[in-house]
Amino acid sequence: MISVIQFIDRAVKKTLTAFCATLLVMMVAFTVYSVVMRYVFKNPPIWGDLLTVLSNIWLVFFALALTVRDKDHIALDLIYNWLPRQVAFCVQQFWTAVIFCLGLVMIIWGLEAVATMGGKYWEMWHFTWEDGGIVFKPNYMPKKYAIAIVPISGFLVCVAAIASIIEDSLRLRKGTYRQSKDVD
């Protein structure tokens, strides 16, 4: 059972890392294309900067879930080293629980923001399914697509925090617990 959970954990981490890498490449590509079109051809696409921003937003929120799981977020490593192992464990678990609560806030209010997004459209094209086919919609992408990452990331942060707490608790019980900076 534990090997299955570890397999899923590694698969999710690799998938999120691949998404982040793809979004980073897309940001660079959109930026280079926009700059070339703006300064060489004097015809910049309106969607270039918008897709760069959208890719950046989604990259940051996916990376947040990765940092929570890997315990790469801002930590109190110096204080952990001065504290007894049990106390350091409790402090680290407290901060992981706080991050879990942040994930819940992202889910709850993120879903509300997606459902009630003010300002209906972003200045970018998109495709939609109408009358049994795909239809191109110029300059009418709903803003909720841009912020849909907030509840998704909130869910991933909650799962990562729970996995981190369970993993650390099992390691403490076995006697193999190490502070976050010591984890590979």
Rank of each mutant, 00 (worst) to 15 (best):
K181D: 15
Y39C: 04
E167H: 09
E112H: 14
M26Q: 04
A97Q: 00
P84R: 11
N139S: 08
F41M: 12
I79A: 10
W47R: 07
V150R: 02
A29D: 00
V36M: 15
L102V: 15
D168P: 00
R38S: 09
K71R: 15
K71N: 13
W129N: 12
T52F: 15
K13H: 14
V68L: 06
S34N: 10
E167L: 02
S180E: 08
I5A: 12
Q6F: 12
Y33L: 11
F19T: 09
D182T: 01
L51T: 13
K14Q: 11
N139H: 08
F30S: 11
L102R: 01
M1I: 05
R85F: 01
A161E: 06
N81H: 12
R178Y: 06
I5T: 10
Y80I: 04
G175M: 11
Y39G: 01
G48V: 08
S169P: 05
G175S: 08
L66H: 01
F136H: 06
I8H: 00
F61C: 05
F136Y: 10
A21I: 13
S164E: 06
A161T: 06
W82R: 11
V4P: 00
P45V: 08
F89Q: 04
F30N: 15
W109D: 13
K137F: 03
M37C: 10
R85S: 12
K181G: 01
K143R: 13
A146C: 11
C158G: 09
D49H: 00
A18Q: 02
H73D: 13
K71D: 04
G118Y: 12
A161K: 02
K174P: 10
P44M: 10
V60P: 00
T52I: 01
A63R: 01
T15Q: 00
A88F: 03
M26N: 02
K42M: 05
L104G: 15
I74G: 02
Q179G: 11
D72P: 00
A160K: 11
W109M: 09
G119D: 06
F89G: 03
W125I: 00
S3N: 11
A75T: 04
A75G: 07
M141R: 13
A65Q: 07
M124T: 05
G132A: 01
Q179I: 15
I147W: 03
P151Y: 06
G110P: 05
V91R: 05
L83H: 07
S34G: 14
V53W: 05
I166D: 01
